[in-house]
Computed example of a mutant assay.
Amino acid sequence: MPANERLPALVRAAQAEGSLTVNLRADLVAPELERAFEDQYGIDLQIVNPGTARITRQQILQEARAGKVRSDVIESYVHEMDTIYAESHVITHLPRFLRESALDPSLTTEFSAETFQYPFLVAWNTQRVAAAEAPRRFEDLLNPRWANRLVMVQNYEMWYKALFDRLTGDGMSVEEFERVFRHIAADSNVTSSSNPASAFLASGQYTAGININLNSITRIDGAPIAFEPVVGAVPLLPNGIGLARDAHHPAAALLFAHWYLTDGVPILQEEQFIQQSPNETRLDGAPVVRPELDDLDSARLQEWREAYDALLRGGDEVLPAYVRGGTP
């Protein structure tokens, strides 16, 4: 079909379907996205977000095993889209026209197109930490004054991998990385997500958070929380959308994905400080780093997940075997 006829035909087919359900991580702007898409196309859009990425993944994989995936479009971390969701046959190949319609086609893969990134950083309570005592490097957090005053968030294995890639790439040895982060984890309490961690920081229950998602900080108006000067580099974890393999509304799914990657971008960019564009390379002047994904498949992703879980509980194997053994 000629390119100039494809979108009008897709709109007609999607409007005939009448509705769709999408699972999005962009919860900050979900009402704005729903309203804008429905106003433009007259198609009923339901955006769902069950919670953390792990809860979402568990729910969708359970639906897939039952043969009843609810969502027509799925958005999650790119490293999960291109491994777990693709290998479990939850999502299907993105058509070429959809990849080419993205603002930056280089940020698309066979199964996903990047939409935004979450920044994760060290943050601290300014009422409990004087400016002169604020950490500048991760090694600063080994000082005894931080003992049992830190909080870390579970399930952030790609934050852990991104820091490993960056710090060891900058010259830190694997042994030193392990020593530093074992110490930090031993001095940390653990929470289920960044939202309670930020609330604990704001209340002063904990003094500093090690891997806090920036959007959870900015949600708390007037919170006595600072994150600048940034400690080290800022890991950015990219999110991307994919099409459900057995979508109930396939035309509407295609149309929404096209819209989200084009007309929906300005809505995401209204929250750009919180949800960074995939093209961003700095955050308020600080360097950012993305985890290396070229070497990642489901097995290695699971290794990083188990390693990070071991770190938080004080286990033995806090880095994947292929890293400790130096296997490329």
Score class of each variant (00 low, 15 high):
M1T: 11
P2R: 12
P8A: 06
A13Q: 11
Q15P: 00
S19H: 02
T21D: 00
V22L: 01
V22I: 09
R25P: 00
V29S: 00
V29T: 03
P31M: 08
E34V: 09
G42D: 08
L45F: 00
Q46E: 07
I47S: 02
I47Q: 01
I47F: 01
V48F: 02
V48R: 10
N49W: 08
P50W: 04
P50H: 08
R57C: 03
Q59K: 15
V73S: 04
V78N: 02
H79W: 06
E87S: 07
E87T: 08
S88M: 01
T92S: 06
R96M: 02
F97V: 01
L98V: 14
S101A: 15
A102S: 14
L107W: 00
S112Y: 09
E114V: 03
T115M: 06
F116E: 05
Q117T: 08
Y118P: 00
T126Y: 05
Q127T: 12
R128H: 11
E133A: 15
R136T: 14
F138K: 06
R145L: 13
V151E: 05
V151H: 10
A162E: 06
D165R: 09
L167M: 15
T168L: 06
D170N: 12
M172C: 04
S173N: 06
E178G: 08
V180A: 06
A186P: 00
D187P: 00
T191M: 11
S192M: 14
S193P: 02
A197P: 13
A199V: 13
A199S: 11
S203I: 01
G209F: 01
N213Q: 06
N215H: 13
T218V: 01
T218W: 04
A223L: 03
A223P: 00
P229W: 06
V230Q: 08
V234H: 04
L236N: 06
L236F: 12
L237I: 15
N239I: 00
I241Q: 02
D246R: 15
L255N: 10
Y260C: 05
D263V: 07
G264Q: 03
G264D: 02
V265K: 13
Q269D: 13
Q269W: 11
Q272F: 08
Q275W: 15
S277L: 13
P278M: 12
P278K: 10
E280N: 15
T281V: 13
T281D: 07
D284Q: 14
P291R: 12
P291T: 13
L296C: 04
A299E: 15
E303S: 15
E303T: 08
E306Y: 10
A307L: 08
A307W: 04
L312D: 03
G315D: 09
D316H: 08
V323C: 03
G326A: 11
